[in-house]
């Protein structure tokens, strides 16, 4: 546990010592609130539905921006050799890095709480739906972090990590959309729909917490974190 905390602290310091964190937070808040207010003034309803519908699309370029450096930078600078020769288990490094990035994304979601606050003042929003929506968004975000982190471990170039992660996220979003599913062979429709993250996300934003959706996210996360551990261990294969 101590080791994991040390890694989390180090990773968060690296985020906040460089301008990345601040630029990320400002731009993320700006774009996400813009998405909210556009529809809010048009429809005049005390709900965040459109905000949460836009959020996955905003995540697609933004999450790779925080995951791309996780391994790629360590590999490029050579610090990975320092890190992995310390008396610390590979899995602790993986969990520490993952937790730090997840905390950072949690912070950026918390900073959007000003929106529900305004809604609370102006009208009478459905707090339950807002809660489940935030919960679903966070689950989605941390699943994407696990995938982005895994992509970062296979390259020492941050730009490559960003492009590949964005592409993978985009595909995962796309395969859940009707216009894509219309052109898929029938026997694959079900598979694609369940593989894409949108079908598992939508229930949360209408206020439903379905255990199968939670299992989907949790298995995505464990699968990809496991790949990280295996990849780190592979250097020791005889």
């Amino acid at each position: 546990m101590r080791n994991i905390f040390a890694i989390i602290k180090k990773e968060l310091k690296i985020y906040f010592n460089s301008p990345i964190a601040y630029i990320f937070l400002v731009v993320f808040l700006l774009i996400s609130s813009m998405m909210f207010f556009m529809d809010f003034f048009l429809l005049g309803r005390a709900e965040m539905r459109y905000f949460f519908e836009w959020l996955p699309i905003i995540f697609i370029p933004f999450i790779p921006a925080v995951t791309m450096r996780l391994w790629a930078e360590e590999k490029k600078q050579g610090t990975i050799e320092l890190l992995l020769t310390l008396p610390i288990k590979d899995i602790e490094v993986v969990i520490g890095k993952y937790a730090a990035t997840s905390l950072f994304i949690l912070l950026s979601l918390v900073l959007t709480f000003s929106i529900p606050l305004i809604l609370g003042i102006l009208g009478n929003p459905d707090w339950g739906v807002i809660f489940t929506s935030y919960f679903g968004s966070f689950l989605l975000a941390i699943s994407l972090i696990a995938i982005g982190m895994t992509i970062s471990i296979f390259t020492s170039n941050q730009i490559i990590a960003w492009i590949l992660s964005t592409a993978v996220f985009f595909i995962l979003l796309l395969i859940g959309f009707p216009f894509f599913l219309n052109y898929t062979p029938e026997f694959l429709i079900n598979f694609f729909e369940n593989l894409g993250f949108m079908s598992h996300y939508r229930s949360f934003i209408i206020g439903v917490i379905d255990s199968s959706d939670i299992i989907y996210y949790l298995s995505l996360i464990s699968l990809f974190l496991l790949i990280n551990v295996i990849k780190l261990d592979s250097r020791r294969y005889r």
Binding site: F5, A6, K13, T79, L82, T85, I88
Partner: peptide, 22 residues
């Protein structure tokens, strides 16, 4: 290690604290 890898985004004290913690 070769080429002396260091964490560029930390300062000297923070780097040493990290290693001390680990």
């Amino acid at each position: 290690p070769e080429n002396t890898p260091v964490y560029e985004d930390l300062n000297v004290i923070e780097s040493l604290e990290f290693f001390a913690q680990i």
